[in-house]
Simulated assay, not measured.
Amino acid sequence: MKRQFVALAAAAALTLAGTASLVASQASAADLNPSTVSHGRADHLPPFAGHAYLVTVETGAVYRNTFSADGKSVTGLTVKGPNVGRTFTAPDLSVQTGGRQYFISWIEPGDVTVSQVVDFDKHTVEFYVTSTDSTGTRSGALYHATIARVS
């Protein structure tokens, strides 16, 4: 639980400061397994469950993220930008951080990680993406986006 709080604190720092350094070695395998983390009460679904959103990034890229009916997995589709047409489905981890604001994270095929803070009232997303390049170097970048519900 302490490690999850550290992850949430890092997400909050991303939102407030615009930059952060995340230390992957602080997380254990159990912390990264979405099945070990509660989405809240069993009768409470997150507001994104069963809905699709267009995520328009400040770089011009656009993604369609469709969440499962229980909110525990996401299917992503690249609509505009690099790798148009690329799709994946992955389990996600979500934690309510306030009001209608959620920290949502997942690992895509190819070891791309996405960690984001979504504010459903302001229709904004702050997210940090990490990936490994062809030389084996792992790097990350912070982005700002807007969201619009499409279904």
Results as ranks from 00 to 15, higher is better:
Thr87His: 07
Asp133Phe: 08
Ser115Asp: 15
Phe103Leu: 10
Gly98Ser: 10
Leu14Pro: 00
Gly71Asn: 03
Ala49Cys: 06
Ser21Gln: 10
Ala24Cys: 02
Lys80Asn: 08
Thr137Met: 11
Thr135Gly: 08
Glu108Ile: 06
Thr137Arg: 14
Arg100Ile: 05
Phe67Ala: 01
Val114Met: 10
Ala17Met: 11
Val6Tyr: 09
Thr66Pro: 02
Ala12Glu: 15
Trp106Gln: 01
Phe88Gln: 07
Ser35Phe: 04
Ala30Met: 06
Ala148Ser: 15
Ala145Pro: 01
Tyr143Arg: 02
Thr130Tyr: 09
Ala141Arg: 14
Arg64Cys: 07
Ala20Pro: 02
Gly76Ile: 06
Val150His: 02
Phe103Trp: 05
Pro34Asn: 07
Thr132Gly: 05
Tyr143Asp: 00
Thr75Gly: 04
Gly140His: 10
Ala148Thr: 15
Asp70Thr: 04
Gly85His: 07
Pro82Phe: 08
Val117Ser: 11
Arg149Met: 12
His144Asp: 12
Leu77Thr: 11
Gln4Asn: 04
Phe5Pro: 02
Tyr63Arg: 09
Tyr128Ile: 04
Thr124Cys: 10
Thr132Trp: 04
Gly50Cys: 10
Phe127Ala: 05
Thr137Gln: 14
Phe48Asp: 02
Asp111Lys: 13
Ala7Phe: 03
Ser131Arg: 12
Ala7Ser: 11
Val37Leu: 12
Phe103Thr: 00
Val125Asn: 10
Ala9Tyr: 08
Asp111Arg: 13
Ser131Phe: 11
Val118Lys: 07
Thr36Tyr: 07
Ala12Met: 11
Arg41His: 11
Ser73Thr: 06
Leu77Gln: 10
His51Gly: 03
Arg41Leu: 10
Thr113Lys: 08
Val23His: 10
